[in-house]
Design a protein around this nucleic acid. Structure first.
Length: 563
RNA sequence: GCGGCAAUAGCUCAGCUGGAUAGAGCAACGGUCUUCUAAACCGUAGGUCGAGAGUUCGAAUCUCUCUUGCCGCACCA
């Protein structure tokens, strides 16, 4: 139920002819201070039309409205403060959460439309770093949020599995590599070969020619080249999947760059057919002047294709395969300009999904203020960070809950949860200077804090087993529960808002707010006390547990029942 | 040089479509476990919201200028 609307409806009769229903609704706000009620209407805007002081207007207004449906309506200066009927509110919201369960907050606005999401996208034969974490967890969370809004997301890992570096890799492997090492630890060893190649080719430039030849062979379908390439790819993918498993992220497709190799010519043909290609300094470009953008370079002067050619092919493929409702790209903010160009080219081509293409950028992860880079050695391995976090969680469990039965499982859930939550709780666009100690904090506004609130709720429910939790009519009068009840009621709006902004952090902040209000309630009220409201309180606890778990799920974070 | 993003407490960040004394977490200091998990709760202290101008009854929030930092600016992805 929309309680803001209830307030607006109450005000409407007194303001007919002055403000439209929509205007009234838009003016209503939530006081920051809890003591000033649940909703407030400021009378400033009416001062001109009524030619009276706002304070006076507020005083007059309150006399004209039906206040019976509220606990009270107060005039404080120029504000009308509305206090909702707590008993009715609690019965309504708890009934709804308990009836709907995990479906609470679900809406169908997406009409099951397909939404491919370009995300994670590590490069074959290179390690997954903290930089990939952001794309992976943001994309994964947006996928869950999409589902909650009735869309059908398709998580696509657009692997970097093609390019001249494979010529170098093959050359290096044949010279210095061996099969067992690659099988044992593919990423480390493949990177080693790659780095060695770059060291050696300074003194032996003929290596570059060899590499070029190998890449040419690969493109021409040479058997040995193909075999090595697909082997490197498989071994890398195995290593990647181990990390994705740890993170709890699955993909629907792994349509990497190689997948589009045979779809590139069609792009060039179509651009030509539509008269969009122009020659410029020997290269083929699409002029984007009318979008106030630099020309997009489609073919190099040597005729080779580029990243954007591949992305156009990808967009065309997705259009044909999915008829997407939206087309999302979770890629770093350094590519904002590039995606403007891509969208402009696709718009020029008349691709229907171009207008629903959204680049979802995020801030850079840096170390000591500097950009990560494999070559310079400034790299933070995601796997190592996850392991550190899991180990830290193990220590915490040993200290705080040594009798916990499934320690290893919970340590993983808590450790990984801390890392994911830590990444998602801040606005996407904030850049992050990596700090391991900061990532491993389990106190305050963190993933474990939310998980802990959930585990406490579950603990109470276990202790109360045998008591029937009512799914309707649960009224709570305890004022300590009020913030928690209101937070529960906000969840459906958060689901909508988070999608609108593509902001998982909205959900993370919400989870903290709900957990915090519940922890406070928990500290001040004895839930299992034997009195008339006990079952109502249990209804609240059950509702909190349900919604916390669901909010964490939308972030890709697990919620253990005990920790 | 042009464009984008950012600047709020010692540190990390919230602050919704402009609204009532600018809020959290961490760190500091003090308090709360014989009672539902203290990974928690309560309190104290801490800010000329980068600077300046403008719009407005009202600006951390909108506009402009400036400063600082990061990112990008066709043959990488």
């Amino acid at each position: 139920m929309d309680y803001k609307q209830v307030v607006a409806d109450a005000l409407a009769p007194a303001l007919t002819g002055t403000l439209s229903a929509e205007d009234i609704y838009a003016k209503i706000e939530r006081p920051k201070d809890v003591n000033k009620g649940d909703y407030a209407f400021p009378a400033f805007t009416l001062a001109k039309t009524f030619k009276k002081a706002p304070q006076q207007i507020a005083t007059d207004l309150v006399k004209q409205i039906d206040t019976s449906q509220f606990d009270k309506v107060e005039v404080v200066g120029p504000y009308l403060n509305f206090f909702l009927d707590k008993a009715a509110f609690s019965a309504q919201i708890l009934g709804q959460v308990l009836t709907e369960g995990a479906d609470y907050g679900q809406n169908q606005s997406g009409k099951n439309g397909n939404v491919p999401i370009d995300m994670s996208s590590p490069n074959i034969a290179k390690p997954i770093s903290m930089g990939h974490l952001r794309s992976t967890v943001i994309g994964n969370s947006i996928a869950e949020i999409l589902k909650k809004n009735g869309y059908h997301p398709i998580k696509d890992n657009h692997l970097g599995d093609w390019g001249t570096q494979f010529g170098k890799l093959i050359t290096a492997y044949l010279k210095w590599g061996n099969e067992d090492d690659v099988k044992k630890d593919p990423i480390t060893n493949l990177v080693k070969y790659y780095v060695k190649f770059h060291k050696e080719d300074v003194a032996h430039p003929e290596l570059d020619d060899e590499a070029r030849e190998w890449f040419k062979k690969l493109e021409d379908g040479d058997k040995q080249a193909q075999q090595l390439w697909s082997w490197f790819r498989e071994e890398s993918l195995k290593a990647f999947k181990a990390i994705y498993d740890k993170l709890g992220v699955q993909f629907d497709t792994y349509n990497g760059e190689a997948f589009y190799n045979d779809k590139m010519q069609a792009v060039v043909d179509e651009l030509k057919a539509k008269g969009l290609l122009q020659e410029s300094q020997g290269a083929q470009v699409v002029n984007l002047e009318k979008y106030d953008l630099n020309p997009a370079l489609i073919l190099k002067s040597d005729g080779a294709s580029l990243y954007i050619t591949r992305d156009i092919a990808t967009a065309m493929y997705r259009e044909k395969t999915y008829h997407p409702a939206m087309n999302l790209y979770v890629v770093g903010s350094e590519q904002i300009y590039y995606f403007k160009q891509l969208k402009a080219v696709l718009t020029e081509m008349g691709l229907p999904s171009a207008k629903n293409l959204h680049h979802i950028p995020f801030g850079l992860i840096t170390v000591n203020g500097k950009k990560l880079s494999t070559r310079s050695g400034r790299i933070i391995l995601l796997d190592a960070v996850l392991d550190d976090a899991i180990e830290m969680a193990q220590k915490q469990i040993a200290e705080k809950n040594p009798d916990l039965p499934n320690k290893a499982e919970v340590a993983q859930q808590v450790g990984v949860g801390a890392i994911i939550f830590g990444d998602l709780k801040n606005e996407r666009m904030n850049s992050i200077d990596f700090n391991l100690a900061e990532q491993l904090k389990f106190e305050g506004e963190t993933g474990p804090y939310v998980q802990y609130a959930h585990a406490r709720a579950e603990s109470i429910l276990r202790k109360a087993s045998g008591v029937d939790v009512p799914t309707s009519g649960a009224k709570i009068s305890d004022p300590e529960a009020w913030e928690t009840l209101k937070a529960l009621a906000d969840f459906p709006d958060v689901v909508v808002e988070a999608l609108k902004e593509f902001e998982p952090s909205d959900v993370a902040k919400y989870a903290i707010r709900l957990a915090k209000s519940f922890n406070k309630y928990y500290a001040h009220s004895k839930i299992l006390a034997e009195d008339a409201e006990k079952t109502a309180r249990l209804a609240l606890v059950k509702s909190v547990s349900t919604v916390l778990k669901e909010a964490l799920r939308l972030l890709g974070v697990q919620a253990p029942d005990e920790m």
